[in-house]
């Protein structure tokens, strides 16, 4: 069975990568299982997704603990224990990293027996959640490394999985993905399917008897102050609602009432004001405002405008 994990950050398309590869395997006649594993469910947070593919029905489930291939979209995750990138890797594993650094550097850093390949990093981007086309590139590189998926099959799978996007975006993804596929062709077959664990020779789980501990220990109460005010959830925002005050009728309650985060306050003069430290950019207010006085603009555009205004 092929067992492949994709590691990246929310927004980089790791779920999409697993789906493209899963569909490609399926089209190549394999039984498939693919799934994302969400953590914090927000852009930028570590996320991984995985694919299993076999010639017979797959009974194995859950997180892959002995991967044949680990594909890393964002090399800042490799050293982060919580991201679990190196978990379960051994001499059989291939580690493919999207990085500016060389395989030798990573080999030394990680001191691993795994084979390391580099997926040449594209241009630097400010927002790590926006590495362009990285999901498609990872899926294509993984497909090439297994040597059981045809180039054309991969392209079909990609087109199918990105079908909701405009044609030109799909085309760009396909071109860039196929380049990654071709780049990896020299290593085709390096990733080989792993076997099943043996019931005659295995490491016995180190089970313990759960000790009884009284509630003062087993349910230590941590009552912190009003921490939600201190967490700047506004950093999650990708779209920013902006009030056009000349159009605002000052009804004073609709947008502030509908805001699910209580991030719209009503000023003394009766007009609303958005708390951008905590507005997550859900745009419910934009949809609800009766005179359509709230517009939405891309967060990065808003920041550029702010920078210009202050300079």
């Amino acid at each position: 069975m092929f067992r492949i994990r994709f590691h990246g950050r929310g927004g980089q398309g790791m779920k999409t990568a697993s789906r493209i590869l899963g569909t490609a395997f399926f089209k190549a006649g394999y039984e498939v299982q693919d799934a994302p594993r969400y953590g914090a469910e927000r852009r930028g947070a570590p996320i991984f997704a995985y694919v299993r593919a076999d010639r017979t029905a797959i009974n194995e489930r859950g997180v892959i603990d002995r991967p044949d291939l680990v594909c890393v979209a964002d090399d800042t995750l490799v050293g982060m224990p919580a991201a679990g990138v190196v978990q379960g890797m051994d001499a059989h594993t291939v580690l493919l990293i999207n990085s500016h650094e060389t395989a030798e550097t990573w080999q030394q850093r990680l001191n691993t027996e795994a084979s390391i390949l580099i997926l040449m990093a594209t241009e630097d981007v400010e927002d790590r959640a926006e590495l362009p086309y990285i999901g498609s590139r990872c899926a294509a590189a993984a497909a090439a490394l297994t040597n059981v998926i045809e180039r054309e099959t991969l392209a079909e799978a990609l087109t199918e999985e990105l079908g909701h996007l405009p044609d030109d975006v799909i085309g760009q993804n396909r071109d860039i993905a196929l380049r990654a596929f071709d780049d990896m062709a020299q290593h085709a077959g390096l990733v080989a399917p792993g076997g099943m664990p043996s019931a005659s020779d295995y490491d016995r789980p180190e089970w313990i008897e759960m000790p009884f501990e009284n509630a003062a220990i087993s349910n230590l109460a941590i009552h912190a102050g009003a921490t939600s005010v201190m967490v700047r959830t506004g950093l999650w925002r990708t779209m920013r609602p902006v009030i056009n005050y000349p159009k605002c009728s000052g009804c004073a309650w609709i947008c502030s009432t509908y805001c699910p985060d209580g991030a719209i306050n009503v000023r003394a003069d009766g007009y609303p004001e958005i708390d951008y430290d905590h507005c997550k950019g859900c745009l419910v207010c934009v949809a609800q405002c009766p005179p359509h006085a709230i517009e939405s603009i891309a967060e990065h555009v808003a920041r550029e405008q702010e920078a210009e205004a202050s300079s």
Partner: peptide, 27 residues
């Protein structure tokens, strides 16, 4: 009856408890 739970899991739990204790003491 047995809960499927390993020594490693309890060790990880102890780390979390140590953080909680420190937080508790600070509060």
């Amino acid at each position: 009856p047995r809960l499927l739970y390993t020594e490693h899991e309890l060790t990880e739990m102890r780390k979390l408890q140590a953080i909680a204790q420190a937080e508790h003491a600070e509060i």
